[in-house]
């Protein structure tokens, strides 16, 4: 590991001051599960490391003004154990449960996972299906951005050198909303996403789909919304028959997104099973049919 100075700010203000001072030459570390490997393997050169892991003010998961607000330092374990998330945002709960290993879930933070935005990351796909918004703070002030914009038109994310992501929030799912997430990996534990799918479905009183948010991960560099699938679903009844054709639609989407990638033949088949299981879970969340694992 190359040499660097190390700071552990005690307050958010102190952290933002340091970021401002070192503009672009600092590395922020929260859980460290991605950053420490980059430092060890010398893929990352930095003048200083700012350890924000002691900023306990950024460690929370709460429902406020109809929004679910999650502090950037919340770990996957904390998210997994949150009773509200477990009951009401099943897609996010399932996402947290399947990240890495117990050790990784104890270290890894939501903020780190969203900002680092690995191609094979777990939570960005799910948060995008929830149409989440990130809160970015710098010495100059605070700004908010939809996750879709945060990941748009750039190599990584829209975060500036002097900014820290402090929170991610989304509308608390109302009655009539079901969420589900599923990832295809090579085994159960310690796997990165080969194909990930996250879905939010809202149904009206007549039992028809009034809103659908479908996001695929692990295929393109960033998670992607699939408008074709979403448009197909809206207006149709919530049923197994409605969801069945999604498998082929997703398979086509994978083929269009990565026509030349060596993993395409595998992913386009794999995504069919992922589709059936994810939508099976949506049915289960609506109390209509069993969902399976």
């Amino acid at each position: 590991m190359k040499a660097f100075n190390f700071y552990t700010p005690k307050t958010l203000t102190e952290a933002l001051d340091l970021l401002n001072q070192y503009k672009g030459r600092a590395t922020v570390i929260a859980g460290g599960t991605d950053v420490v490997i980059e430092l060890t393997e010398r893929q990352r050169d930095t003048d200083c490391v700012i350890n924000i892991n002691k900023l306990n003010e950024l460690r929370y998961c709460k429902v406020e003004d109809g929004k679910v607000k999650i502090g950037a330092l919340t770990t996957f374990t904390e998210l997994e154990n949150d009773p509200y998330i477990r009951e009401n945002v099943k897609g996010l709960h399932s996402c947290a449960v399947h990240v890495g290993s117990p050790q990784i879930r104890n270290l890894g933070t939501i903020g780190g996972n969203v900002v680092n935005c690995s191609v094979a990351g777990d939570s960005p796909t799910t948060f995008m299906a929830l149409d989440a918004t990130v809160v970015l703070q710098s010495k100059a002030g605070k700004r908010e951005m939809k996750l879709t914009d945060f990941y748009a038109n750039c190599k990584k994310t829209q975060i500036a050198d002097d900014e820290l992501m402090t929170e991610i929030y989304f509308d608390a799912p109302a009655k009539g909303i079901a969420t589900a997430t599923m990832k295809l990996g090579k085994r159960k534990a310690l796997v990165i996403v080969v194909v990930g799918l996250a879905v939010l479905v809202e149904k009206d009183d007549a039992g028809n789909i009034s809103r659908a948010q479908v996001v695929i991960g692990g295929v393109s560099p960033k998670p992607a919304r699939l408008p074709k699938v979403e448009e197909y679903l809206v207006g149709k009844p919530v049923s197994k028959a409605t969801f069945a054709p999604c498998a082929d639609m997703l398979s086509d989407a994978v083929r269009e997104m990565i026509p030349t990638r060596a993993s395409m033949p595998y992913k386009k088949e794999g995504v069919k099973g992922v589709s059936d299981k994810t939508f099976g879970r949506i049915l289960a969340d609506f109390g209509l049919q069993e969902g399976g694992r």
Binding site: I29, G32, T33, V36, I37, N51, K54, I104, L107
Partner: peptide, 30 residues
């Protein structure tokens, strides 16, 4: 493995298992 895959370096931090190859020394202050 030095990348959090194998768990051989597991230690307990405040009673919680973590892979110590993924933490910088300064992070365990206190």
């Amino acid at each position: 493995c030095s990348e959090g895959e194998c768990g051989a370096c597991t230690v307990l931090v405040n009673g919680t298992p973590v892979t110590s190859c993924l933490m910088l020394a300064g992070q365990i202050e206190g």
